[in-house]
Design a protein around this nucleic acid. Sequence first.
DNA 1: ATAGGCACCGTACCCAGGTACGGAGACAAG
DNA 2: CTTGTCTCCGTACCTGGGTACGGTGCCTAT
Lengths: 135, 135
Amino acid sequence: MTQKNFTIGVLANKAGVTVETIRFYQRRGLLAVPVKPLKGVRHYTEGDAQRVRFIKEGQKLGFTLDEITELLSLEEDRHCREVKVIALKKLGLIRERIESLRKMESTLSDLVERCAGNNDSIACPIIESLSQASK
Amino acid sequence: MTQKNFTIGVLANKAGVTVETIRFYQRRGLLAVPVKPLKGVRHYTEGDAQRVRFIKEGQKLGFTLDEITELLSLEEDRHCREVKVIALKKLGLIRERIESLRKMESTLSDLVERCAGNNDSIACPIIESLSQASK
DNA sequence: ATAGGCACCGTACCCAGGTACGGAGACAAG
DNA sequence: CTTGTCTCCGTACCTGGGTACGGTGCCTAT
C-alpha cells in the first residue's frame, strides 16, 4: 500500500499527463515530492497516481487547481459540508457563465440570421450592431 | 469630422477604458497612433472613440482581439459574407462552450443534490466521484 | 565501461487581455 | 515660474495551467 514502486515517468503515464505536469503539480503543492534516496531517483505509489486522477477529474468539473487543493485537503475524514459549499459556489459560477454565454449566443444567432451573407445588402447587421455601441 | 479634438485620457474616458488599454490596443494594431506634433501631445477623434466602442462591443459578443481586428478591416464596403463566416464560427464555439459547461453543471448539480451536506454520512458523493476517476 | 534513455532541477516561455511602473516631457492654473 | 496633472514610452508583471530547454546525474543493457 505504502510501497514505493514506480518512477515519475510511469506515474505520468498512469495518470495520463506529462512528466512536466507532475512536476508542475509538485511545485503548486498539489502533489508531495517523495524523498529522494541519496543515490537514485524518487519513487511514486499508486496513491500518487490516484491523486493525479482526482485532480484531473476535478478539472473536468470546472474546479481550479486552488479549489482542488482545498478539496484534496478535505478528502479524508468527514468534510461533506465544506465540500458541498465549494461545489455549490462552483455550480453558481458555472451557471453564471452559461447564462453569459447564452446571452452572447442569443444576440449573435439573431444577428447571423438577419445577415443576408451576400455582399449586396445595404449594410451588414453584424457590423451595424457593433458600431451602435448600444452598451 | 476628421477634426482632431481630444487627448488620450479623454478618449479612454469616452470609451470606458483606461489609458493603458488604449495604448495596449495601439500596440496590438487595433487602433492607429495619431501623428504627434513636434511639440505637444497626440490628438484623437470621435472616430477613434467609436472604434474603441466597436472593440468593446465585439468582446461582449465573445470575439477575440484578433477576430475584432479582422472585423474592423471588414467594416467599410460590403463584406457581409466574410463577416458572417467569422460570426458563424464564433457562434459554433460559443455553443460548444455552453454544451461543455452544461455537462459540468449537470454532473455537479447531481452530485450536490446527492450530498447530504452534513458531516455524518458514510462518504461524500462529491469526493467519491472525484476519487472514482471514471474517465 | 560505455551509450542511450530517463530523472532532476532551475528557469524561461506560452496564451489573452490587459495592468503597473518609472522617468521624462508637456501644458494649464495660480 | 512653479506646481501638479497629463502624456509619452519602454518595459515588466499579472492570472491559470501548463510546456519547453538545457545541463547534469543516475540507471540499465550490452
